[in-house]
């Protein structure tokens, strides 16, 4: 029982999530999305055969990485496992969430299925809680057209506060714009102002109390609001990860260990 989790414990992930392993790329981009949104089509279309697959450290979840070059810069694309949410209720969700939080990619592309916006927006809103460097890729627009669904992309971008790019990755439509926008976010040329979900007042009150203290403790390493919410939710995996991160930092401060993170 629980063998896979036991024998390949969560500790294994975070150690390998530092950015250093991607040092040969100029920018690291994460690709997130619900299952069945054509996320892998986007991944394949961007990276071509320039990719390799393996497992996430200590997990039997497939990890695919690829590379592409845009305007002389090397972009490394990490294909996160398909997930409906980031509540970490399955191994895929946990891997995706941990990477977004602890891997700290330079930009995150969230792929949406244009025929199923409402469900997909759930994931988008959760990603925006962790990181503001997000590009929304509304994929399968051709299929939405066939199903007579119309989407106002400008209104969507305004609602979310991050750029939106419509694509039909199967036919290569919209990918140039996507690459351009990703580059803008990663280099900081494009600034985003995500509209984060506000919860009911009791929760917001508690978050307001915790957030400054978390900022003081961990600095800008992780999104303090998000960590506050996870602490309130008693999310053991996040608590353990933060603890591990702090222990290392303690070690560095007292000169006991030479490991520098973040």
């Amino acid at each position: 029982m629980g063998l896979i989790n036991q024998s390949c414990g969560i500790g294994a992930i975070k150690e390998n999530f530092g950015k250093s392993q991607f040092s040969n790329a100029d920018h690291v981009i994460a690709l997130a999305g619900n299952p069945n949104t054509g996320k892998s089509t986007v991944f394949n279309a961007l990276t071509g055969l320039n990719q390799h697959t393996g497992n996430w450290p200590g997990k039997t979840v497939l990890r695919a990485e690829g590379r592409y070059i845009h305007q002389g810069l090397i972009f490394k694309l990490i294909d996160l496992p398909g997930a409906y949410s980031l509540m970490a209720n399955s191994m895929e969700e946990q891997v995706a969430r941990d990477y977004l939080c602890f891997g700290r990619p330079d930009a995150t592309v969230v792929v949406l299925d244009a025929t199923c916006m409402e469900r997909n927006l759930n994931l988008v809103l959760q990603v925006l809680e962790i990181t503001s460097r997000v590009v929304i890729c509304v994929n399968l627009v051709d299929e939405a057209e066939r199903k007579k669904i119309q989407i106002d992309y400008h209104a969507l971008a305004a609602e979310l506060g991050v750029p939106v790019v419509p694509t039909a990755a199967r036919d290569g439509v919209g990918l140039d714009k996507l690459v351009e926008t990703v580059s803008g976010i990663a280099t900081g040329r494009i600034e985003t102002k995500p509209n984060v979900v506000r919860y009911k007042e009791e929760i917001e009150v508690a978050v307001r109390k915790l957030e400054p203290k978390i900022k003081k403790l961990i600095g800008e390493a992780f999104n303090a609001r998000w960590v506050a919410l996870r602490l309130l939710d008693k999310d053991q995996t996040v608590i353990a990860a933060v603890e591990q991160w702090l222990t290392r930092k303690d070690g560095v401060l007292t000169g006991m260990e030479g490991v520098v993170l973040a």
């Binding site: 106002d152 609602e159 929760i203």
Partner: peptide
């Protein structure tokens, strides 16, 4: 509570930007 809030926000956005 959080899941409900997020989904109702998603519903709200979808309602504003998607037309059939």
């Amino acid at each position: 509570s959080m899941v409900s809030t997020i989904y109702s926000r998603a519903e709200e956005i979808a309602g504003r930007v998607v037309t059939r």
